[in-house]
Structure formats: structure tokens, C-alpha cells
Amino acid sequence: METNLFDKYGGFSTVSKIVMRLYDKLLDDDDVGPFFDDVDMPKLIDHQTKFVATLMGGPASFSDTHIERAHRNLDIEPLHFDRLKALVDETLREFDVEDEDIEAVLAEFEARRDILVGAS
């Protein structure tokens, strides 16, 4: 039986740690950090944990419509999206996620570029 990435790397316990570490990096980043000013971080981290779980084949699910609505009023440019992907890559490596699995997760992010970049 083939295991999805969510189960392979420890389910919500690990995904939650990955997301919390990712947000430590995002908040400290000069390019993307300002997007999180005045944001309810516990709520956002909960949503992002479910979103990343979805990308990894886990049980939570987020539709592209939901993602688009959540980012509608943000002026996300290609630079911001690329920086996010670089930080996701870096963070997944810290958790010993295998290269091919990182590529799969990044491909899932990339598949949503058009609904995030320039959505405002």
C-alpha cells in the first residue's frame, strides 16, 4: 500500500511543526512578513496546517475558491510567491523531507500560483 506524504511524514503532528517553523521564517522575512501584520496568527496557522496537510494528501481539504477568497485583497506579486516557495523548500529540508517529496509539495503550491499572484 502506497503511503501519502501526510502519513509518510507523521500526519498532523509533523505538519503542524512544519507550518509553525515556516511561519517563523515568513514573519521574519522582509518581503512577505508584512502580509501578516494584524493577522490572527493562531487561526491562520490552523488553516495553513490543514492546507499543507491537503497538499500532502491528508484528510483536510481546501478548495481553490477558498484560497482565492482568503487572498483576494492582497497584492501578491511573483516575488512574494517565489519567496514563499523558497521558504517552504527550506523548511521541508529542515524536517528531512526527501527531495522528490519536496518537489511534489512545491508543485502543489505552484499549481495555485495563478489564483494567488495578482488576485487583488
Rank of each mutant, 00 (worst) to 15 (best):
M1I: 10
M1P: 12
M1E: 13
E2L: 09
E2T: 12
L5P: 06
L5Y: 01
K8H: 11
K8P: 00
K8C: 06
Y9N: 00
G10E: 06
G10S: 07
G10V: 10
G11D: 04
G11C: 04
S13F: 06
V15H: 02
S16R: 12
S16M: 06
K17G: 04
K17Y: 03
K17L: 13
K17T: 10
I18S: 03
V19F: 00
M20F: 11
M20E: 12
R21Q: 15
R21T: 15
L22D: 02
L22T: 00
Y23C: 04
Y23Q: 05
Y23N: 02
K25Q: 14
L26D: 03
L26T: 03
L26R: 01
L27S: 00
L27V: 08
D28L: 07
D28Y: 02
D29L: 08
D29F: 07
D30G: 06
D31G: 02
V32P: 04
G33H: 04
F35S: 02
D37F: 08
D38N: 13
V39I: 15
V39D: 06
D40W: 11
D40E: 11
D40S: 07
P42V: 11
K43Y: 13
L44H: 05
L44P: 00
D46V: 08
H47E: 10
K50W: 06
F51E: 03
V52H: 00
T54Q: 14
M56P: 02
M56G: 05
G57P: 00
G57A: 13
P59N: 08
P59A: 09
P59G: 05
F62A: 08
S63N: 05
S63F: 08
S63R: 06
S63C: 08
H66E: 15
H66C: 09
E68K: 09
E68Q: 10
R69K: 14
R69C: 11
H71T: 05
R72M: 14
N73R: 07
N73K: 09
L74H: 13
D75L: 08
I76P: 01
P78T: 08
L79G: 08
D82P: 00
L84R: 00
L84F: 13
L84M: 14
K85M: 14
L87F: 05
D89N: 11
D89P: 05
E90F: 09
T91D: 04
T91F: 04
L92W: 02
L92R: 01
R93E: 15
E94D: 15
E94F: 03
F95D: 08
V97F: 12
V97A: 06
V97E: 01
D99E: 15
D101H: 12
D101T: 12
D101C: 08
I102N: 07
E103H: 09
V105N: 03
L106C: 14
A107R: 11
A107L: 12
E108R: 10
F109I: 05
F109A: 08
R112F: 11
R113K: 15
I115F: 06
G118A: 04
A119R: 13
